[in-house]
Amino acid sequence: MAQRGVLMNQPADGILGRVSDLFFRKPGLLLLILLGPPLIWIGVVYVGSLVALLVQSFYSIDEFSGRIVREFTLKTYAELLRPSNLDIVLRTVLMAASVTVVSALIAFPIAYYAARFARGWVKGLFFIAVMLPLWSSYLVRVYAWKLILANEGVLNWTVEKVGLTPLVDALLSMPVIGGPSLSFSYIGTFLVFVYLWLPFMILPIQAALERVPASMLEASGDLGARPGQTFRKVIFPLALPGIVAGSIFTFSLTLGDYIAPQIVGSSRLFIGQAVYMHQGTAGNLPMAAAFSMVPIVVMAIYLWIAKRMGAFNAL
């Protein structure tokens, strides 16, 4: 019976052996089997959806019937260039750029301390503090900030106690960024965006600074470089890939977000809100698709500029 069992197992072992030999002789076949399904998924679901979005943007909508005219035209992009729509694009890009710059300025010293000085439990506490906001719901955090920034919120109460109410009133009285309160102004939207995306800036910069050898900083000091020169010539160039990686997150996430400006901010639209309005409320899918192409084009230009500046050379 034992011999019979051995003989019955031989064909299976033989098949597995031949398959193993085949993969050994043709490693490219194994690679194709492993990478084929995810590549197909990316190609069909991700790239395919972007292509469908691009195609939709070249359609137009019949103003009389409200139906989509599936004929190639640049009419939708001509409407996108109207002053009201260009104002939405410019407003969103400026907000994304300001959030990215301020996030980088706040994140760099925090990441530098974590990379160079934090050790043991302090470093663990740093990672928990950075990641802790991401453990809660996005909507919960945005609505919490709406309460914080309201006239009856804790921020205004603190500002009143320390005597800075005239400064806040002066900021809110400014024609572009101001409003009736912090929760109904661009200032409030800006603060919420910085809070939401700051962890996505801190972690890439910290990872880049971790890879900077301490010996290079010591050598720079031994050669007579001042701290400012060491920062400009050694630290910043080596940390630049991390800054660019973090800026890609903060810039792109701000460009496409529509929930935070809808909850905290004024009635003026951002790109994400315009896409939501045209696709959901107005039923103008071609215009929504055209607005959706704007962040893709802006990010492509941004990445091209970053590459030209050598930001990806150290990756």
Rank of each mutant, 00 (worst) to 15 (best):
R70C: 07
K146S: 10
L74W: 14
S137C: 08
R141F: 14
L74F: 14
Y113A: 14
L29V: 12
E160W: 05
F108M: 09
L90W: 14
Y112L: 09
P37C: 12
V140C: 09
F126W: 04
V162Y: 01
L167T: 05
A52T: 08
R91P: 01
K26A: 14
L125G: 12
A96N: 01
L125A: 15
I110M: 14
V51K: 05
Y46R: 06
W157G: 04
V44E: 11
V102M: 07
L167V: 09
V168H: 02
A97S: 11
I40T: 11
V102Q: 02
N85G: 02
R82D: 12
L164M: 11
S137Y: 06
V93K: 08
L35Y: 10
K26R: 15
V154G: 01
Y143M: 12
V122P: 00
L147V: 09
P133V: 11
G120C: 02
L125H: 00
S136Y: 13
Y59C: 03
A111P: 00
I106W: 00
L50Q: 03
L86R: 07
I33S: 04
M131E: 06
I68W: 00
G48E: 03
S84G: 12
V122E: 01
D87S: 15
W145K: 07
D87E: 15
L90G: 11
Y46I: 15
S98P: 05
F72Q: 10
A118K: 07
Y138H: 09
A107R: 06
L164R: 00
W157L: 13
I106P: 00
V168M: 03
P166E: 06
L86D: 11
L90C: 03
